[in-house]
Amino acid sequence: MTTILDKPMPSPAAADKPIKPIDPNRTRATPYVFVAPAMSGIGLFVLLPALLSFIGSFFAIPLAPGANWKWVGFDNYTSVFGDPAAHRAIENTLLYCAMTIIPSLVLGLLLALLAESLRHGRTLVRTALFLPMTANLVAMAVVFKWIFALQGGFANQALAWIGIAPVNWLNDTRYSLISVALVGVWRGVSLTMLLFLAGLTTIPGAIHEAAAAEGIRGWAKLRTLILPMMKPTIVFATVLSILTSIQAFDQINVMTQGGPQESSETVLTYTWKVGFSYFQLGKASALSFVLIAVLIGIGLIRRRAFSAEQR
């Protein structure tokens, strides 16, 4: 073994092989090789279907493979606009969003702050609060269906115990949407709390110390330090909550199947019915895009209102 002190070994680069120039093609191709598989996946199964769906919303689409699509212009959209059930579905989706997104975010943040501030049993509390997020929503919906059952369900037994007449949670048009939304919140809070907790841990300890040294505490600290520093997390949690809420399906399908009388029908469950029970695939696509248009519209209005408020 030569020691490093008697160095001059043949230099490593020159050693055996002649120096090859960097193959520019190879190094430049690498990133594309890295992204190609992933991009093909989302391209084929997200982007392309979304595009096809948009195009398809102007066609009458037969289910049989090989059969030709027939151009129908805006017929699918007219059909959506003329369909009271579709109106109802869009309305319900927006209601469901309102009932789940805001409570999920507010409660999630509150619980994250609470759980973070505990000095004892923090891990235990966290675990307990995370569990809804991991639960299988179909399984939980089965349980909730039993909890909300008219006869012998826990909810009604509890109401009876305090002397209130039983409520037909799942089969009353007034309550069905609220019932499924409760399940949505139960689960949504868990996810947002996880995100907020994760966001909280990224705030460096020095910030907390600096705030303590300057006497910034409580609400003032939350408003001037914590929330601004968590802005990326808040945006992320909001986006995820919106996505989860407009795609709510599992518990609705299990608990109410959109009923009674479309009272808990959402765009997704209705799209499902139109597409795969009535096989009006073009109309199903059109329905999705009407929802997307409505959501974008609301987003723009809110933004307007918000920037107007700022001025």
Binding site: S11, P12, A13, A14, I19, K20, P21, I22
Partner: peptide, 14 residues
């Protein structure tokens, strides 16, 4: 005396 332009980092005697 050997031009290094085409030599990648790990093949330089460095």
């Amino acid at each position: 005396g050997v031009d290094q332009r085409a030599v990648p980092a790990h093949r330089r005697d460095m």
